[in-house]
Amino acid sequence: MIDYRARFRINLAIALCGLAVFAIVPFVANSGLVFLAGLVAINIVFGLCWNFLFSGAGLLSFGHAMFFAAGAYGMAVVSLRMPELPFFLGLAFGSACGALIAMIFGYIALRRASGVYFAVLTLAFSELIHIYITKTTFLGRNDGLVGIPRPTIDLGPWVLDLTSATSYYYFIIVAMTIAAFALWCFQNSPAGRLIQAIRQDPLRTAFLGAGIRGWQLTAFVVSGTIAAFCGAVMVPFTQIASPEIAVWTVSTQPILFTLLGGAGHFWGPAVGAILFGAIAYGTRAMQGLSDITVSVLLLTVVLLIPGGLLGLWQRRRRKAGGRQPGQAGDDARPGTAAGKVEARQ
């Protein structure tokens, strides 16, 4: 038996520790670094929701940029064209845009396609959204929508003023912590575990009476909604929604985070996103160097340590400290060489 209560507490602790670390950043770093940290916090959840789809449901998406962009543009449209609406309605609208797109395209793509076909279909859909944005005047075409205001939130007795970058930064990290932990809860809920069962053996799970495609679509929509939420939260921070966030290279960002950090672990993408942010910051002076560093790292991970950094760390720990039953191995999922080894133990 897996003790889900203990796991719940451990993962809540991890999420809160992450929140605490990010909360310290504005005290020790300059505003440029705080800006970067805010983006990294958003990227963490972006990566987590992609990995939920990849490791949880076994669907490889190359089109997550479309959700991110849908959320961002949904938020931007609400705050620029309908400024009288409250901020949270903008967030909800942005997330709903992502959910809607995920529902439509997911329904189409899952009907026939699987594996590599699914990946390329999502890529094609995402590119459709990108082209649509660059050609639509309402969405600002190639220039994007600029000058998106940061909100002041009226909570009855208190008024939250988020107009400065630092105060909005705190809103981001709290929102992202909640989103990340909510995703963890969903992945470990009965529904989430059923989705993982489908990933491991679709046929047997179907025999148990589960509707495979319906659950896969659910996973796709959940992942898309959270990605859209990330986009919606980001827009007031950067104050611009440009078509660049819909380009397919954005779709590959969460893939990089996940693989670098370790796909077999829920928090793997978080490690990857932080590492990725650090690499981008460290190599910012030299054009091309960050791409080269990231790609060489990624190749090394895929070819030599398929479990990613967290997988490497866990294997080390297991070798050094003996087995820790119900702790180390049960996060691993098959599909990678390391996952296969761990699944057998």
Binding site: L60, G115, T252, G288, L299
Partner: peptide, 20 residues
Amino acid sequence: AYSLIATYALLLLCGGVVQL
């Protein structure tokens, strides 16, 4: 999925080298 991602890493490498 992993080999697809490995070739994507190669694409990224090409882009980086060209920029450099």
